[in-house]
């Protein structure tokens, strides 16, 4: 499976990664090699095999629907310098 340069750029955009030209070349080669190795799975007959998403199956794990104390705001906001009025500040994503 040979990935094209455009494909690698598109994946990087989807993953919100800013890659340099060298990184794109590097990942184009490395991802193609890893996907080649993954193509071995096409040897398997998987008709009728159910997928396993978790090692130990569990269903409908519920908790009591109860209001409990949250973390203190100052602790939550401690890890950013970008805050105002007890909120995280980001750049505008919509026009006025």
């Amino acid at each position: 499976m040979e990935l094209t340069r455009q494909q690698v750029e598109q994946i990087a955009h989807l993953a919100r990664l800013d890659l340099s030209a060298e990184e794109i070349t590097l990942y184009q080669n490395q991802l193609s090699a890893i996907l080649d190795a993954a193509d071995r799975l096409t040897e398997l007959d998987l008709d009728g095999v159910l997928p396993t998403a978790r090692a130990v199956p569990m269903q409908n794990v519920m908790r009591p629907d109860r209001v409990e104390p949250s973390l203190p705001l100052e602790d939550v906001l401690y890890n950013t310098d970008h805050q105002a009025s007890d909120q995280f500040v980001i750049q505008a994503i919509l026009d006025d």
Binding site: L3, Q7, V8, I11, A12, L14, A15, R16, L17, D18, L19, E23, Y27, Q30, L31, I34, L35
Partner: peptide, 19 residues
């Protein structure tokens, strides 16, 4: 730009997983 702080291996796996 912030996510360029990831090293090569996380970037490689994020790329592979996204694909």
């Amino acid at each position: 730009k912030t996510r360029s702080l990831f090293g090569a291996e996380p970037k490689r796996r994020i790329m592979l997983g996204t694909y």
